[in-house]
């Protein structure tokens, strides 16, 4: 049985300025799948994720998101949730105002706001300013905003990096529910241990993406660590 494809990327090329970042990236992601995009800083994870989310335009290659070409239409964004690497919620609004505002923009309903507040346990933060939140609660709010319109595709970038363990557990629980419920997730990350949370991983390096199983990804990283580790230990200074 073939899996329904939600995201299809064929030979995607992207540049930042004149510097080529992606040089022929291809992959597909199906229903109920969590696809990780792994790479160190600056390899183009965010560029790739922003292209899929329709935030960044592309000129060369083919991208199909939820059956639509992001270059031609924004229709797919109705069923899309995005959590960016940098804090991108509305800094001048409080937590509840952000939820309310996002709900209106995404044409969600009042009960959706209540749902995500409960899911991400945001009750104690509602009156606080979004920009005053610590990293953990902020990511919970970001995820709540991303899921408020009950999307089928979630594009997330460094979701659980450097956050408290309680928030991490909450986020992973809800993400798991989302995927198990038939949602598709594309998740950019740079901490190798997170690869075990994915179904498949795309290893991004030198503008190319190599698809690997999570265990393979871990082994490849360990192999590279052995290769590049200084004889005297991890720290070579």
């Amino acid at each position: 049985m073939t899996m329904e494809i939600r995201v299809r990327v064929i030979d995607l090329h992207q540049k930042i300025g004149k510097k080529p970042i992606l040089t022929g990236v291809s992959f597909t992601v199906g229903v109920g799948e969590c696809f990780g995009i792994f790479g160190t800083r600056g390899v183009g994870k965010t560029t790739l994720l922003h292209t899929l989310a329709g935030i960044r335009r592309y000129k060369v290659g083919q991208v199909e998101v939820l059956g639509y070409n992001p270059r031609k239409t924004d229709v797919f964004k109705r069923s899309l949730g995005v959590v960016t690497q940098e804090p991108s919620l509305f800094h001048d609004l409080r937590v509840i105002e952000n939820l309310d505002f996002m709900a209106t923009l995404k044409q969600a309903k009042g009960q959706d706001i209540e749902r995500v507040i409960e899911q991400f346990e945001l009750q104690d933060y509602l009156r606080e300013s979004a920009e005053a939140l610590e990293a953990g609660p902020y990511q919970r709010l970001s995820m709540a905003c991303a899921l408020i319109n009950s999307p089928v595709l979630l594009v997330i970038d460094e979701l659980i990096k450097d956050i408290d363990l309680y928030s991490r557990r909450l986020l992973l629980r809800e993400l798991n529910r989302f995927v198990q419920g038939g949602g598709t997730c594309i998740w950019g990350f740079s901490q190798i241990e997170q690869c075990l949370l994915m179904h498949r991983v795309g290893w991004l390096e030198n503008g190319q993406l190599t698809e690997l199983e999570p265990q393979e990804t871990l082994e490849k990283w360990q192999q590279q660590e052995k290769e590049w580790l200084l004889p005297g230990g991890e720290v070579g200074v």
Binding site: H50, K77, V82, T84, S88, F90, L105
Partner: peptide, 14 residues
Amino acid sequence: GWRSWLQWKAIGIS
């Protein structure tokens, strides 16, 4: 000039 611009673009508000 703000990062929230990414949200506007991701939501697809013209």
